[in-house]
Computed example of a mutant assay.
Amino acid sequence: MDDPDAPGIPEGLSGLARRLRALPPSCGPVRLIGVDGHAGSGKSTFARHLAAALGGAPVIRLDDIATHDELFDWMERFRSEVLAPLSRGEAARYGVYDWVRGEFTARRESAPAHAVVVEGVGAGRRALRPYLACLLWMDLTAGHSWARGRLRDGPAQAAFWDDWIPAERAHFAADPSRPHAGLLVRACAEGYEVLPGPAEPCGTP
């Protein structure tokens, strides 16, 4: 039976957090938790809630890593700035891309905590999966996700979405994440439903 969820923690996440905390480390001392899904599927909101349920786990947003010129070709930077230091038990330090100015304008640090959440399109990519303790997939169809994203971002970002959608289609066609997800996450009216994924489920329910 799921644990009662603490105040402020959406329904379903306390038990998931307990399950993830029990996993063995996957990147040095860190349990790296990937949250992938289509753009607009609710990854960022879910990751924020999951991080709170994990006791304030750091969240690394792939929107900070990717750029206009490297929507998906950021793996080498991610490997050197995030994976390598975390695997040594050191803090990850990486540049934060400003999507308005089109350049890196800040740097961020993530400690090698017990669990670190990586969220964004491509968090379950082939090159990253060996470092993940668990891959979660936001189980919302591409069409519904993209419609939500367009509505969220408004007309000012219409041209970006016109470029993004074919790029995302090409990425997942070449390097699909959902078949490798241990758990599927579906947003509900109250909290989240967490279901076994196509791959071996992560941890013990």
Rank of each mutant, 00 (worst) to 15 (best):
D162N: 15
R48F: 13
A167M: 07
W161H: 11
V194A: 00
S41E: 02
P130H: 00
A6K: 14
S80C: 10
E81N: 04
C202F: 05
A115H: 03
A189L: 14
A115M: 06
P112W: 13
R129P: 02
L50Y: 09
E190V: 13
I60K: 01
G124I: 07
D2W: 10
D153A: 07
M75Q: 14
E81K: 03
P24F: 00
R31A: 03
G95I: 08
M138A: 10
A123Y: 06
P112C: 12
V82S: 01
V82P: 03
W137L: 06
P201A: 14
R152G: 06
T105S: 00
A115C: 09
L20S: 02
D98S: 05
G15C: 06
T141I: 12
V121Q: 04
V59E: 05
A47L: 10
A142Y: 13
P25G: 14
K43A: 05
P112Y: 12
L13M: 07
L83Q: 03
E190T: 13
L195N: 04
R48K: 14
A170R: 09
C202K: 04
W137A: 01
P58Q: 00
A92G: 05
S14M: 12
R108V: 06
P196H: 10
L54T: 04
I9H: 06
H114N: 14
C202R: 05
L16G: 02
W146E: 15
D163S: 15
A133Q: 10
T67Y: 02
G37A: 03
P10E: 11
E76H: 06
G40P: 04
L183M: 05
R19N: 02
S87F: 10
P25V: 15
F104I: 07
D3I: 12
D5S: 05
G102L: 09
E11G: 08
A6G: 12
E119Y: 08
S26R: 00
D64P: 13
C188D: 15
V59R: 04
E200L: 11
S177T: 10
R77H: 11
A187Y: 14
A57L: 04
A127Q: 09
A199T: 13
P176V: 13
S80G: 08
D153E: 10
V194Q: 00
